[in-house]
């Protein structure tokens, strides 16, 4: 048969004991939280210290590699100068002289029988041509060539006749200014 338990303590004492237990529990929980916080912060600090060590190791390794690269500087200099030269040579070779192209074009479109007296090609965008011929058909052919984009491949924008005259020897002399693309 179960014994009957009767708490004969006064209610004030019981209330006091209850509050004391609550307080003790709250303090324990608070201390536990503080301990956890301290442990967490300590771990964090340990990781920071460890990672600083990693940084130090990496710095050392990088310094060694820098020394190694410095000892190979001669090779790097050769390679850099060589590459720079190749780049510039390639750039120059891939941009052909416009004057040379224009000269070839003009000499190709001036028909045989038209005598070139002077040809000046000192600007990339224009040239001066003085020529003469006795054959009006050749002159017509030249003018046709100058105005036909199929012949000059669209490289001539405009051709201006500066002067044209027929001389005593039956030759037609003309001066042209040709504007180039």
């Amino acid at each position: 048969m179960d014994k009957i338990k009767i708490n004969l303590l006064p209610p004030e004492i019981r209330e006091f004991a209850k509050k004391r237990n609550q307080k003790a529990l709250l303090v324990k929980v608070s201390i536990l939280m503080l301990i956890l916080l301290v442990i967490g912060t300590s771990l964090l600090l340990s990781v920071v210290v460890f990672q600083r060590g990693t940084i130090s190791d990496l710095d050392g390794s990088i310094k060694q590699l820098e020394v190694k690269i410095t000892t190979l500087k001669q090779k790097e200099v050769i390679l850099s100068v060589l590459k720079n030269r190749f780049t510039n040579i390639s750039k120059l070779e891939n941009t052909p002289a416009k004057q040379a192209e224009t000269f070839n074009l003009i000499t190709a479109i001036v028909p045989q029988g038209v005598d070139i007296i002077s040809l000046t090609l000192d600007k990339p965008e224009s040239l001066l041509l003085s020529a003469e011929t006795t054959d009006m058909n050749l002159l017509q052919e030249l003018f046709n060539n100058l105005t036909d984009p199929k012949v000059h491949e669209g490289k001539i924008i405009a051709a201006t006749i500066e002067s044209i005259n027929k001389r005593a020897n039956n030759k037609v002399h003309f001066d042209l200014t040709i504007k180039l693309k």
Partner: peptide
């Protein structure tokens, strides 16, 4: 002039001839 090793480019050309 395109076949020489030394890099060069035509800058200008002026021709005069007797008819």
């Amino acid at each position: 002039s395109k076949q020489i090793a030394r890099l060069n480019k035509l800058q200008s050309i002026s021709i005069t001839g007797s008819p």
